[in-house]
Every structure is written in structure tokens, then in C-alpha cells.
Simulated assay, not measured.
Amino acid sequence: MKEIRDKSGEFLLGLKEPQDDFLCKPAQFSEYTVYFIPEGQGTFHADFGAFPFKGPVLLFSTPLQVIYINDCRITKSNIIQFHSDFYCIEYHREEVACNGLLFNNIYLDPVVVLTEREAGIFELLLGQINDEFMQPAPSDIVLRAFLQLFLAKASTIKMNAISTSQDKPEKDELMERFRQLLNVHFLDLHKPSDYASLLAVSPDTLTRRCSKYFRKSPSQLIQERLILEAKKQLHLTRQSIKEIAYNLKFQDEFYFSRVFKKFTKVSPQTFRDKTGISIVADLYK
């Protein structure tokens, strides 16, 4: 693996060609991780979601997501990983718009399907990143610029796919309303039956249509939405664990920690230690 680290030895950016069995078992990384798979197919698992893919594609995961690939028949791939200390997707959200599009969106598939021409562009970018790593003193500025271009290009392709409904050819208005309701009520309503009542459908209907549309059950989405907000506050604010637990309406920080660890496999404090506090944290005071 080619990589750069800061003066204290902390990982900042890396590029590697993994072995075939690299992601056969569930893994968690402290960094944002992007897989470029020009050829091959499989099923990408990220937390509760399962997303079949066929190359050429890009696959995206956020820090400390539980991820793996099964039914894997991949002949070639690259992985690029970066820590938020090296490139903050929240700070650069206006230029790149990848936060909430490629990363940190529980409703969208973490997959960007590429044409052969687009795959060639990403191969070129990865080649340029690799060339910079090969320099006697790789430039952080150059590597950051290539990474930003990589993410910006991927964001543009994803937005075009969404605008032309390539991601979900058959729009389900009921599920779009469920998405809206969940974003409004996720702190207070924690049962699928609560949302089924608001939508005037049976819980079975909600589960069936949600699983088809989002590839996750209502229970999984409800839990992911709460944990996503917890991760956001841990990374983007300087509030204490106790304050965040209060914000999320947990009875105390200990119950919050148990729920968070059950989902992420790490405690809130460990998540914060591994991902760091964003440079934009002071904007959220």
C-alpha cells in the first residue's frame, strides 16, 4: 500500500490494489474508503444494506461502517482511503457535494455505476495519484487536489444518475413520503408501526415496499437514521457524549453508548477518537 502519514504517524491517505479475498470478511476502517472495480461483480454489504454490482463501478463507505463483499468475482480493483484530517468532506461540501451523496446517506445506494469511458477517467486519476506517491517527497497539496477531482467527478456522475432516475427507475411516492417522515420524526418515532400509521398502510405493506425500494427494512432505516445523526454530532461538534445523548433524546449517555456500540461495534468516544473532530466543528457550536 502506498500511503502518507502526518508527523505523529497517523494515516492520512492511501492507495492499494487489494488481494481477491481482502473484503470477504466484515471489516471496519477509520477512514473514508472508495473501491474502484473496473471489472467483476458481487454484492457490497454496508451496515444493513446489500447492493449487487457489476463493474465498472465505484463503491463508497464511511468511517467505521461494517463492510464486506460476497458473491465476489472481481478480477481487478483499487482502494483509495483518506482520513478526514487530510480531506474534510464537510468543509469542501460546496465544491464537491459528496457528503450526503456519496457518503452519509442511508437512502442512496453507495454505488456509482460507470461507463467504460468514465472508468478510463478514474483509472487515469488513480494513475496520477500513484505517480505522485512514487515521488521522493509526495506533495500533500497535489494529492489532495487529485482526491478532490476524483470525488467531484464521482459526485457529478451520481447526481446525473439520480436526475435521470437511473438509480431507481420506478419512483415510489409512498416510500418518498416515508423518507420525509423519518427525517422529521427519527428522534421521537422508533417503530415501523408508527410510520405505517402516519402513511395509512399496514406494517407489512411498509416493510415490503421499503425493502424493495431502499433494500433495507423500515427498522433498519430507522436505526441507521438515528446513528447517522449521532455520528454527525460526534464528528462535527465539540459537544460532550452526555450532551449528544441528550440531543438525541436518550435517557442517559450510558444507554446511548450501548445502542451506538451495538450498531457500530465501537463506543461513541472510540468513534470520535478514530475519526477525529472536524475542522468545521466550531461552526456547529
Score class of each variant (00 low, 15 high):
Arg5Met: 13
Lys171Leu: 14
Val96Tyr: 01
Ser257Tyr: 02
Cys72Thr: 13
Gly42Gln: 09
Leu174Pro: 00
Thr62Val: 10
Ala281Pro: 02
Gly127Val: 06
Leu189Cys: 09
Tyr91Lys: 12
Lys153His: 13
Val113Thr: 13
Ser61Phe: 03
Leu221Phe: 02
Ile162Trp: 09
Leu102Met: 09
Arg209Ser: 03
Leu23Val: 02
Ala230Lys: 02
Val34Gly: 00
Ile37Ala: 01
Gln269Asp: 13
Phe53Glu: 01
Arg179Pro: 01
Gly40Cys: 11
Asn104Met: 08
Asp282Ile: 10
Val34Ile: 15
Glu173Ile: 14
Tyr246Lys: 06
Leu108Ala: 07
Gln220Trp: 01
Ile141Lys: 14
Leu228Val: 05
Phe256Thr: 04
Ile80Leu: 12
Ser77Trp: 01
Val201Glu: 10
Pro26Tyr: 10
Ser8Ala: 14
Ala200Pro: 07
Ser219Asp: 14
Asp273Gly: 06
Tyr246Ala: 13
Arg179Val: 04
Asp167Trp: 00
His190Asn: 01
Ile89Asn: 03
Gly42Ala: 06
Glu3Phe: 14
Val66Pro: 03
Phe36Arg: 02
Ala245Tyr: 02
Arg177Ala: 10
Val184Gln: 12
Leu151Lys: 01
Arg225His: 09
Leu198Gln: 11
Gln180Ile: 08
Arg73Ala: 13
Ser217His: 08
Ile244Glu: 01
Cys24Pro: 05
Leu206Asn: 00
Leu59Gly: 00
Lys54Gly: 10
Arg215Cys: 05
Phe256Met: 04
Phe260Ile: 05
Gln81Phe: 09
Arg117Pro: 00
Leu283Glu: 12
Arg144Lys: 15
Thr205Ser: 10
His45Pro: 00
Ile69Asp: 00
Leu12Arg: 09
Val142Ala: 13
Leu58Pro: 11
Gln41Lys: 15
Val34Arg: 01
Gly40Tyr: 07
Met175Asp: 00
Phe178Lys: 03
Glu118Trp: 02
Val113His: 13
Cys210Asp: 00
Ser257Ala: 15
Ala200Thr: 12
Ile279Thr: 10
Asp6Met: 09
Ala50Lys: 10
Lys212Ser: 14
Lys191Leu: 13
Lys231Met: 07
Asp20His: 12
Tyr87Leu: 13
Tyr35Cys: 05
Arg209Gln: 07
Arg208Thr: 07
Val266Thr: 12
Leu283Lys: 14
Ile244Leu: 01
Asp167Gln: 14
Arg117Cys: 06
Lys232His: 15
Asn105Trp: 08
Glu3Pro: 04
Glu39Ala: 12
Glu118Tyr: 08
His235Trp: 10
Tyr68Met: 06
Asp131Phe: 09
Gly276Thr: 02
Glu170Trp: 09
Glu176Arg: 10
Ser84Trp: 00
Tyr255Cys: 03
Leu108Trp: 09
Ile79Gln: 11
Asp273His: 06
Asp131Leu: 12
Ser77Phe: 04
Cys98Gln: 05
Glu10Arg: 15
Cys72Gly: 09
Asp47Met: 09
Phe271Thr: 04
Ile244Gly: 00
Ala119Gln: 07
Pro203Met: 03
Ala50Arg: 10
Phe48Glu: 06
Lys54Thr: 15
Gln223Ser: 08
Gln180Gly: 06
Phe260Cys: 09
Gln166Ser: 04
Leu12Val: 07
Tyr284Arg: 08
Asp20Leu: 11
Arg177Asn: 13
Leu182Thr: 02
Leu124Ile: 04
Phe256Leu: 06
Phe133Lys: 05
Pro26Leu: 11
Leu23Asn: 00
